[in-house]
Every structure is written in structure tokens, then in C-alpha cells.
Amino acid sequence: MKKIIVGFNPLKWVTVVVYIFIFAPILVVILMSFHPQDIVSFPMPGFSFKWYAKFLSNENLLRALWVSLTLGLSAGCLAGVIGTLAAFAIVRSNLRIKAALNAVTFAPMVISGVVMGVAILSFFNAIGFPRGFFSLVVTHSLFSLPYVVVVVSARLAGFDRSLEEAAMNLGATPWQTFRSVTLPLIAPGIIGGMLLAFTISFDEFPATQFLSTPSTATVPIRIFSMIKTELNPQINVLATIMIVITIGVPLISEYFFRKK
């Protein structure tokens, strides 16, 4: 059934337009980061790295970047460990609660970040625990858990259990089997899930706004207030850096995830 598409195919062109719509905002920001003037204007009068230089001397933003990176790594690792264990529980155990657990794990994905944020704030407030880095790590790890669970479960579901049997048959104890066979083989999934968790954390704003303190202001917190108050072209630079990180990290994770 070979169709010869002659000339104009409306479906194709609609698709092209949608792709332009998808990429336009991202491209505009990257382009603007090289804008030479204080006031963003069109068409661009030239090309400069001026805002990159300014950004690199803006201590507030650099500190926020540091907070976001350490937060993302902590939350990613935490979600990685908890999510991997949970994925084992969901894929391999036959306990009754696993279906319920599976469903509840996905709740943070669909409940508004604002509501999650105020609820966790209320919780920490009720037990007299101050907001700040720790509360952010907890919250962000909760948000990233579903992603880790999905990725690691997928890897585990495709795991050939006879490999574990073979290892035990050759004399490896269950723990040695886990370390030498199971873990290395699902590691790409775990790393992929953790990197995805990092991305989620790195971009989280709705809940973060309730839990961060001035010393733990993350990049999204800074950007939000900058957008709200003045349109500082340094946002473009920060945005470009964030785009590079948030697109780069999943690409790396995709690499790990795909690798057999």
C-alpha cells in the first residue's frame, strides 16, 4: 500500500507548525541570552557575551545554582534508593499492598505542587522542624519517586531471573548474586531514574516556594522573583544554562537507560 504524496500534505504541515510551537520558546530564550542591550528589543542589534559575564559575577544567582545542584543531587540519590527498593517490592513481591503502594506512589505526580508544599510545610511546622534544605530534600525526593519507580520497574520487569539462578547455581549467595549480577544489570535504570529525579528537583517551584529560606533559595525561586519584579537579561543566561543542564542530564540518562 504505497501512497505517493503529491505536493501539499496538510497533516505534515500542521505537525511542522506544532513542532515550531514546541521549540519556539526554548530557542527564543537561548537567542536572547546573547542580546547586547539592557532592554530586550527586536530584531537583535548584535551578539554579545556581556550577560554571561554579568551572570558569572552575580553571587546570588551562583549561590542559587549551587543550592539547586546540591538539592537535586541529594533528592535524586534519596529518590534513587527509595524508588529502587520500591520498584523491587512492586515488581517482585506478591504481597497484597503492592498495588495500593503503586497507586499511592504516583499521587505526588498529579497533586498540585502548591498543595503538596503547604501540606508538607504544615507537617514540619506541626512537629516543630524548621524549613530549609532538609525539608526541600524530602519534598523533592517525594516528587521524583514516581519517575524512579517507573524507570527501575521497567528495567526489572525485563530482567531475566535465570541469570540470578545461574549465579546462585555457581555458588554466589543471594547477596553476592545481587551485587555481582542484579545490581550491575539494573544500574542503568537506577542512574537514569536518579538523573530524571535530578531534573524534576532542579525545576520544582510550586512546593519549593513554601519551604525554602533565603539561604536555601533555589534557581527557580530566584527566577520567579526576577520575572515578577524586573525583566533582567541575566535571566536569559540562567535560562540557557538551565536548558543545557535539564536537557543534557536526561540525554545522559537516556544514554544510560538505553545501554544494555
Binding site: A24, P25, I26, V28, F224, I227, A239, M242, I243, T246
Partner: peptide, 11 residues
Amino acid sequence: WTSLLIRNYSW
């Protein structure tokens, strides 16, 4: 994968 804040800023 791109920050939602950044995309809104771009709009």
C-alpha cells in the same frame, strides 16, 4: 525537560 519557569519567561 526544559524548566517551566523558563518557558513561561520566554512567552
